[in-house]
Each structure stands twice: as structure tokens, then as C-alpha cells.
Design a protein around this nucleic acid. Structure first.
Lengths: 340, 340
DNA sequence: CTGTTAGCGCGTTCAA
DNA sequence: TTGAACGCGCTAACAG
């Protein structure tokens, strides 16, 4: 495609072209190509040959106009900076892919007006359904207005419990991490959380504390919350070391925080995991795999989350009624910051 | 939208509905809504009121079928892990947004078969154009087959020079970084590059060396290439320090490499930027802003790249002929790893 | 000024 | 087994 002759508007080949070449009617061609019966083998072959020769491809606009189904969904995200929507898109594509579904991606950038605008635009384009991906686990207000297609919320659930949402279980994730540390024999644990305005922050901590309690333990220093940054991880780790010099395990609300912790520990001459084991949250590869030592962490399984959301959307598209809330369980990824 | 009554198929409101409510014909409604003339003010008002009341929105499938224009483009990427396509999408959305354009996002995952499949699917959906985003700056083979719409390649150019491509100037970026280090008085410089199979690797190094030469300098140690990882950055930095203990500046092929360098320098007791200044490449915020000290680096301006690609696509859509190769110049972001 | 008609490309009736 | 006709929702071309 080296030439740029655009004005020429090389008309796409249509059913009529195939019909003409084959010498039959468009209706017959349609039947032949769609494997409907009531067609002789001979004409079917002739049609297929002609279609092949003209490299005919059906116009899905026309098809959608007629059938009311476009095999198209909208993915409305608020997190294009981030690491949530993309694995989710991959998962959704996996689930959709087999069904020949395409995805409109719109980034609302956290702006409700923009979001509303995109919803309108998606509906104008007759999408069959909408996937809404949040940038945080906090519940969010549902899309407003009359939405004549099914909607599935992912990561951040709709605040309306009747809406269909897929979320991660942050409590379970926190529990997982704590259990792991206790399983490898750690008893003097602390928790460094992220931004306290994030629901994920408190829930992960809650899960961790609950796990400790279940084994008769409690953290040796009160959990601390700050921000999702390495700087906070460093600062909080220093503080924890100061208040509990004999601690033997640090649970972190994110991999960035854990990375800060690891750096401080190394600089303080504490061996990891020998003296102190560290666990993160996110399994954000560039960080978790590049830290020293490599970071054990909790993976929210975003692709699975995306696949689940896509499957739920399918079921709704098929007219099935589905429950409001669906949970994807995180899993533990062990690397050398907890086990050697 | 709390209910899930799907079977009911609440039919979307159409021109005919508005026409009926207003008591005029569909043609009249169409004219009124599209601001065509030949309509009395009274009927126009009545139509607008009715449309508003029924919250009518035109079906863009029907419109596209008729006009041949769908106001839709495909974004074919090979880098959804990464940090290239997303800022690019933002830029493209910015440029498109004003024109009410929507984007189909497809992730080919580096697989030519999958890519071909997606191209077909995009064309079936009658996209007006296609944006191809690579995961590396190396030239790539053009899309194959008859593509009846304009294509613009971004980041990684098409190997066919007549195709329209937007690229970053890695040579200039490398030069920028080197110039900056020399401007702050550094003379004993080394270069640590990334994966040598990436064109970006050699080009950034070339630019840096060229800048040195232009001031009568050459690196105090031969440039070294490895991978785009912190581990390589650490390893290479140790090696450089060993071979040239008195070096006073390190240029890195990526922020990850630079991050590794910073960590080693701190551990070796070298002050940054006091003893040694460090500059990265990418301006990957989570890394560059969280390192100690914060990292000066080269920003490829991906959003600008996306905007440029989108604008070029527009011009092609408008039938304009555009040159094959377009270059976006990177810019320097200074933080405290080079200036205090 | 407004209504009617034709057709965009396709799938699905019905007759033949 | 095939063809002709209709309609999906819309805009453009005419007629009135």
C-alpha cells in the first residue's frame, strides 16, 4: 500500500459484485456465504469461488443495521496511565476474540462529563454492551441516563448493588500475604499501607490483621498509611524499624511501597529475607522482578478479572440474568524476598 | 439502569419516532436536525423539541452506511504491556476528540497473523483509517494486503519509505542528554545502552557520542550494551566504575538502567550529582520521580507523537498527500540527578 | 417549505 | 433451488 491515491475511492466489493460475477442474485449469494441451506452445492461453490476471487468481506455496518447486533463493545476506562485497564483489555480480548468482537476504547480520565460524552458516543455506535473499568477499587456511581445495553463494572464496582460488577478481593489478598509470612515462621510483623483514601488500602490491611488475629498475633507496630510511593515506603520502613527493631516481616500495600522498604533495609544492613521478609502487592513486574531481592507479592489477576467481566457481559447479552457482584481471588507470587 | 430486562429490547428511538411525534415526515426531521436550510423556524423548533423529549440520537451505523464515513479509526498496537501505545492513544484521542472520532483498539501482541486478522476485522467495520503503533523504534514491514484506507505508522516506521510514519529522533535524544551533561561541566562520561538488537539502543548512543565528539571529547570507557533492566544498569555501572573510577557522568539508554546506576552509586558512596551526574531516557514517571535523587531524563513526547500521527491521518482522510517520514523531537527533563 | 422516494449493503422473508 | 422484494435508520434527490 505504497500509494496515497485517496480521492479514487476504490469502492469496496459488495454482495452485488459477487452476485454479478457468479450470475445469481444477491439473496442467493448471501445464503451461500452464510451456510444457509436451500442451496445447491454447485452454486454454493461458484459463489464461494467468486467471493474469494473478489476477496469479498461483508460490511458489518450493514449487517449491524439489520440485525441490531454489532459485535462491538465499549471499554470505558479511567486509568490509561495505569496498569489496570490494559491487562483487563487483554483478558477481555481473549474472551471476546473467539467471538469476533471488537472493542472501542475510551479514556474518560476521571472526568464525569467526559465519561457521559463517551457513553453517548458508544451508544450512537450501537455497541452491544459497555465495560466500565475504574482506576481504584472504591465503589463508583453508576453510569447515568438510559443505557439500553448491558453494563459491567470492573475493578471499581458500581455503588448500585443490582448492577453487575467484578471486583478483586483485597481482604483476601491481604490475608494471603500475611498467611505466607506466618507460614515461613515470621511472627513480628508490621503493615505499611498506601493512600488511606483508597478502599484497597484499608481492605488489604484488614485482611492482613485478620489473618494475624486468626493465629493469635497482632502487628508489632500499628499499621501506617501514606501514599502509593517508594518514598513513603522508605519513610515508613525507617519509622517501623525505629519503633520495632526486632521486626521480622513487612507487609506492604503495593510493590512501590515494598520497593522502598527493600531499599531501606539493604541500606540499613538488614538481610532480606534472612532478617526480615518483605511482601508487596500488585505483582507489577518491572518493579517486582527488578528489585533486590526479587519481590514476593500478591497478584490481583487482572487478566482473569477482564475475562470474567467479558464473560458476564456475554451472558447478559444472551439475555441471561446474572448476579450483581462477582469476585476474582488474588494469588500469591513468591520470589526471593520471602523465601530463599 | 438497575434492571436487567434484556429480552424486552427497548427499541431505540429513531427518526420516524421523532417524525411521528412532531407530525412531519422523516425527511423534514433529518433536515431540521442537521441544520439544513429549507425549513421553517417553527417546524425546526418543533422537531428539536420532540427530539429532545425522546432523547433521540442518530444511529451512526445507518449514517456510516450511507456516507461511507464512520468517524472511526483502528489503533493496532503491539505494545499493550508497555508505555508506548497509551500516551499515544491519549494524544490521538486529543486530536480526534474534537472531531468526534472513536478508536477501535486491537492488540496484535507482536503476532503477524493476529495483526492480519485485526486489520481484516477493522476493515469489515469500515474504519476510516488505521494507526499502527510499534513496540520498538525499529522499522517494521508494512501491513500486507489491499488496505483501502490510509495507514499511519507510529514509533516504529514502516520499512516502505512511501508509507506515512511518525518516529522519535533517538539520535537527537542521545545528543540532548550528552549536551546537558557537558553543559553542567562533565567531561569524563560513559554510556550504558540497552538491548543491542533495538535500533533505539544504537541511535541514542550514536547521538551521545556525536555530541561528545562535537566538543572534542570521547567516552572514558567504550559504551556497553545489555538489556533494558535495572540489573544490567547495576552491573554495567560497577564495570564502568572499575575501569574509570574518576568518571563524572553516566548516560543511560533507559530510566530502568539509570535507576540501577543510581542504586549502585549510592551504595558505593558516590554522590549524585556531586561526584557523578546521571541521565536516563524515557521519563517513565514511576521510576524517574521515585528514584534517589530524582532522575533527569529524555522524554520522547509520546503524546505529541500520538497527536501528530492522528493529525497526519486526518490529512490523509481529507485526501491530502503527505510526506512519508515525520519526526517528533524529544525533550530534556531535568531533575536532581544532574542539577542540584 | 414539506413530503415522497430511492438507496447505502445486507439478511430474511416470501413466491416462483 | 433460486429470485424478488422488503426493511434496518438515515440522508439526498426530487416533487409537490
Amino acid at each position: 500500500m505504497t500509494d496515497q491515491r485517496l480521492g479514487i475511492k476504490t469502492r469496496r466489493t459488495t454482495l452485488a459484485d459477487v452476485a454479478q460475477l457468479t450470475g445469481v442474485s444477491v439473496g442467493t449469494v448471501s445464503k451461500a456465504l452464510n451456510d444457509r441451506d436451500g442451496i445447491s452445492q454447485d452454486t454454493r461453490d461458484a459463489v464461494l469461488a467468486a467471493a474469494e476471487k473478489l476477496s469479498f468481506r461483508p460490511n458489518s455496518l450493514a449487517r449491524g443495521l439489520l440485525s441490531g447486533r454489532t459485535n462491538t463493545v465499549g471499554l470505558l476506562t479511567n486509568d490509561l496511565e495505569g496498569r489496570f485497564s490494559l491487562p483487563m483489555l487483554m483478558g477481555a480480548e481473549d474472551a471476546f476474540g473467539a467471538q469476533q468482537l471488537s472493542v472501542f476504547l475510551c479514556d474518560a480520565r476521571g472526568d464525569a462529563i467526559r465519561e457521559q460524552h463517551y457513553v453517548g458516543s458508544l451508544l450512537d455506535r450501537q455497541v452491544d454492551g459497555i465495560l466500565v473499568v475504574a482506576d481504584r477499587a472504591n465503589p463508583r456511581p453508576p453510569l447515568t441516563g438510559r443505557i439500553p445495553v448491558p453494563v459491567v463494572y470492573a475493578y471499581g464496582p458500581s455503588s448500585d448493588p443490582d448492577d453487575v460488577s467484578v471486583i478483586t478481593d483485597d481482604v483476601e489478598g491481604g490475608r494471603h500475604g500475611a498467611m505466607h509470612l506466618m507460614d515461613i515462621g515470621r511472627r513480628r510483623l508490621v503493615y505499611i499501607g498506601g493512600d488511606p483514601t483508597y478502599l484497597a488500602s484499608s481492605q488489604r490491611a484488614d485482611g492482613a490483621l485478620e489473618a494475624l488475629r486468626s493465629r493469635g498475633l497482632s502487628p508489632v507496630v500499628e499499621p501506617a498509611f501514606g501514599s502509593w510511593t517508594e518514598a513513603w515506603g522508605r519513610q515508613a520502613t525507617l519509622m517501623m524499624l525505629d519503633r520495632a527493631p526486632d521486626l521480622d516481616g513487612i507487609m506492604c500495600g503495593s510493590d512501590q511501597i515494598a520497593r522502598g522498604a527493600l531499599d531501606v533495609l539493604r541500606e540499613q544492613g538488614r538481610s532480606v529475607p534472612g532478617d526480615i521478609a518483605v511482601i508487596g502487592y500488585d505483582n507489577w513486574r518491572p518493579l517486582a522482578e527488578q528489585s533486590r531481592p526479587q519481590l514476593s507479592t500478591v497478584d490481583m489477576n487482572f487478566e482473569e478479572l477482564g475475562r470474567t467481566a467479558a464473560r458476564l457481559l456475554f451472558r447478559r447479552l444472551a439475555g441471561e440474568h446474572v448476579e450483581g457482584l462477582h469476585v476474582v481471588t488474588p494469588s500469591l507470587v513468591t520470589r526471593s524476598s520471602t523465601v530463599s
